[in-house]
Nucleic acid binder design. Structure first.
Lengths: 201, 201
DNA sequence: TATTATAGGGAACGAGAGGTCACTTGTCAA
DNA sequence: TTGACAAGTGACCTCTCGTTCCCTATAATA
């Protein structure tokens, strides 16, 4: 019946753009990877740039759907260990999911060329997670799990290192496991530094 | 007299590669920006790839010369405020020096394609500064300026946020001043958290 | 059954890419 | 003065790019 080729073109485009960048990708290879001849692609998109725009639209929509709205906030952990668990679930997912890896790579490669890629990169790499964890940490302070402090600053101090490790995994995938361990070690270090010490046991 | 054209070609290449990437740069434009015709470039480099390799060689040499050797370590600050000063001098330099900005951008754009770019990116973006500050923080702990702790972990927790702000400046230059203020705020926050509290005044 | 829209194949086009080559010019050493 | 060489020019080559056009096969529709 009707084709899902239009979708498959976007998948292939994500794969190739994330490896070679927009300029380094050519339609012939892209179509070939789908078992098509290149003119076939033009039945679904009118140009290479149209493919790029459609891909960006999809990435923007995906981001908005999954991280965009305030009601998407993760639950505030009930214990310091809960923060570690939540963080590691996030990290493990984000450094192993191929599609998300490729999305980050594309944004990395095109952030200086395309304004929309730049904006999305900014959110993806830093501001989005920082805003999210600002709320999380504020909640943890209310619960007495963290020392009262500037929750935005704490979120920044927490997310930037995690984000750096994620980028490290994208760049050097063979170090992924080590980076994950380091993320966990950092998370525990963070709790040790910022956690409330007055828990009597 | 004799030409510095070979040098100027590398400068122009850095500029164009950092904007449009290797694949997105063409020799005609590159030569034109030097007032040459493209065949003139081939008197100095045998191919586009040769230009790229020479540029990478230069970046690697520059990095090795300025940050590579242990004796290049910055002096250990004498006070918490000294850490802020030293950090802000570094940050101000690195986000305003055009050549360094372009170097970071090139490494960002080519890190997934070229192994040497990948390695240099890893050092530039995280491991180099982290190793440097591991030493600095160890020194500060010896002087009693910081709580005794894992100096490598502290360096990572300090450098990753700073590095994130530097990348933010590359991506969104209009936010440079704001990022600098945030870097300073973070540096002071860091000292407040990790500094020795037993200074009586 | 006849028709028509859709997905794809294949050849071809123009533009622009990287690269070559014969030629000119200026400079310096012998 | 002459010869050699480095630096730059402009025409040209080949290849590949994005894109277009026309053809076919298929499957749904009237």
């Amino acid at each position: 019946m009707a084709s899902d080729t239009k979708e498959r073109i976007l998948e292939a485009a994500l794969e190739m753009f994330s490896q070679n960048g927009y300029a380094g990708t050519n339609i012939r290879e892209l179509s070939a990877s789908l078992g098509l001849v290149k003119s076939g692609v033009y039945k679904h998109y009118e140009s290479k740039e149209a493919i790029w725009n459609a891909l960006l639209d999809e990435m923007i929509a995906y981001y908005a759907e999954h991280f965009g709205s305030p009601e998407r906030l993760p639950p505030v952990p009930d214990s310091p260990e809960g923060l570690v668990t939540m963080t590691m679930r996030m990290v493990n997912f984000t450094v192993h999911d191929e599609k998300i890896i490729m999305t980050r790579k594309v944004l990395t490669l095109e952030q200086f060329r395309d304004g929309r890629a730049r904006d999305l990169a900014a959110k993806h790499f830093l501001t989005g997670l920082t805003e999210m964890f600002t709320q999380v940490f504020a909640g943890m302070m209310d619960k007495g799990l963290l020392r009262k402090d500037d929750s935005a600053m704490l979120a920044f101090a927490y997310i930037a290192p995690i984000s750096a490790l994620i980028h490290l995994c994208d760049r050097e995938p063979e170090k992924t496991e080590e980076a994950i361990r380091q993320a966990e070690a950092f998370s525990r270090h963070f709790i040790r530094v910022y956690g409330q010490e007055d828990r009597s046991e």
